[in-house]
Design a binder for these strands. Structure first.
Lengths: 335, 335
DNA sequence: AATTATTTTGTAATCGGTTTCATCTTTTCA
DNA sequence: TGAAAAGATGAAACCGATTACAAAATAATT
């Protein structure tokens, strides 16, 4: 039989109010009664029912995380950091793997509207709910894919600058025939990285060749396919900037299958620095995203929002880093 | 201002009971009133408060997933399948990344005791709560690492048979100097795979050399370190069975650093078949775990348990599969 | 010692749904 | 047509905590 606060109160010879106070505001209770209560709590093994409390306090103690694919290393690393921060702050995290389905996004978005969660972390480029009836935004933090809404707090890296850094690295090695394997056109991260790619080329007076720009979906398979397309070109690039490590890994795979040597025949640079990047052969040069820090900062910002405070800045940018490994080198002489 | 069921009832000109019925048991309500209610629901944008309902029904609609590391591809794939099944069944999943901390395990374990979740999926080898005061077990399903408790439902693969298959593959290629990079000694999966390793060797009359058995922790780094140890041996193995793909990837890394050719100089076989296994160079031969199916089946079993039914079998084993790729071959002549 | 201020505790209202039970309608069937 | 059965609806109890408010106990002040 399930024991409730009443049972504990009876056992301790106090009212349920006192039990509640002992558990959530011990300082309001006499040392003496407190110990009586705690004894009863331990004896009965009482665990407060969250719903009773949540109903009264209007706080769920939950946050939702909306991600397109938890299987993705980038997302997994971020959510791990989130979970840790959340637990430390006394929150539980509801996992929303949306598989890019808008319906699923809305499903999880509703949770925060219906009070099932106190805040929401969104890693997709859309708001997961209508703001139609909303008088004010719920506690929401956005990362990875920028949501087009000025009032939403964002934790990101400077994607354009990251791309510029990547391409300039290639240029500094002597490459001029630099292709890009980008993500889906409508994702903000791709938009910004593509802008960076073009800016870096322009700055170096390298003409932009649209045939060198292939669209993928950030996944391995699309990297494989994209590289196959690039290899069919009459004038092949000597270096490729991939907008994700997964696509870079796919691209390298295609290169290996076709007996190209990396980086001698073609340089590859990725983006993200997932853990497998340094385990490839050759080890992948890439732009490192601070995944842990991203996750932590997202949760910290959300925590602040849930306390009713506003963070100092609506948009917070964390530093990225160029990690040079083995997959990039100067182009072969004469290409 | 937050709108509740009363507001909707007023607007629709019915009682709150009718609104509730319309939403959760439409068949109890007249077509006519139903449409009146739905109209009011849509007009107000009413979202039922979960806690009110949960409090009354004693159902949270949540399940907890307790995993040692969500960053791990194996876990990520499984939880993804779980989330999908859960959502389809109307449940939300609470993520518990425990980082091998028993304290964190208990934290999440309590959720199911306190009613914050209706069921729990455990991927660690321990029960995440005391069964002291419990009259009966909560709805719990266990996978990946076997919990030592007869009444807990388990969804697994046959780890021993998997290991036997792996080692016999190596033996069939002509290897006799077969090392093992195993997981932590106290994990049941390692215990079973190690037993399989030994059985396969014994069956082929190959003596077991304890120096050939190195302990890792299933992670990449430990695979790197383990292979370094193996390379220091006077009589080096010609093949290594790694108890996880991650350790295999680490081991291959060490081999490459030391300019060994895989599989010519040494064959490597992994376990799991994570997505990166086929992206390594050479592509990793491995024992494929049906990760998706494992996740789905776990959730299905839990669903049954939460409905108060018992699954046909306490232990359900799913089929594994040997996937031969490029990292295994016959040993070089004369070694 | 009497009065006032402060601290502790208890009573009861409250959060927002669901569900039992009674009542009122409608349908079925003799 | 009338009685019985079935169906739809509403009133109110209920789930289990928190907390405003009142009352009681204790401490402080004069």
């Amino acid at each position: 039989m399930k024991i409730g606060i009443k049972d504990v109160a009876k056992k301790a010879g106090v009212s349920s109010a006192t039990v509640s106070r002992t558990l959530s505001n011990p300082e309001l209770v006499t040392e003496n009664t407190r110990s009586k209560v705690m004894e009863a709590v331990n004896a009965t093994g009482y665990k407060p029912n969250r719903f009773g409390a949540s109903l009264r306090t209007q706080k769920s103690g939950n946050v939702v995380v909306v991600m397109p694919d938890i299987t993705n290393q980038v997302n997994a690393s971020i959510i791990r950091a989130i979970e840790r921060e959340a637990m430390d702050a006394g929150y539980s995290v509801l996992l929303g793997d949306t598989q890019n389905s808008e319906e699923r996004e809305r499903h999880y978005g509703e949770m925060v509207l219906s009070g099932q969660a106190d805040g929401i972390l969104v890693f997709t480029p859309r708001l997961p709910f209508e703001l139609g009836n909303l008088t004010k935004l719920p506690a929401i933090v956005n990362s990875c894919e920028e949501i087009d809404h000025a009032d939403v707090c964002k934790v990101t890296i400077d994607n354009e600058a990251g791309a510029i850094t990547a391409v300039e690295h290639l240029i500094s090695l002597g490459h001029t025939k630099i292709a890009a394997i980008k993500g889906p056109s409508l994702t903000p991260s791709t938009r910004d990285r593509l802008a960076g790619y073009k800016k870096a080329l322009q700055k170096a007076d390298i003409p932009i060749d649209e045939k060198y720009i292939i669209t993928g979906d950030y996944g391995v398979e699309s990297g494989i396919a994209a590289m196959e397309k690039l290899l069919k070109l009459k004038s092949r690039p000597t270096a490729v900037f991939c907008f994700s490590d997964d696509m870079a890994i796919g691209a390298m795979n295609t290169l290996r299958e076709n007996e190209y040597n990396i980086p001698q025949d073609m340089s590859i640079i990725g983006f993200d620095d997932i853990s497998y990047a340094s385990l490839m052969s050759p080890k992948l040069t890439t732009i490192k995203q601070p995944l842990e820090a991203l996750g932590r900062q997202c949760m910290k910002t959300l925590l602040k929002l849930m306390k009713g405070q506003q963070p100092e800045q609506k948009v917070m940018q964390l530093p990225f880093e160029l990690v040079v490994r083995q997959s990039t080198a100067a182009p072969k002489a004469g290409t």
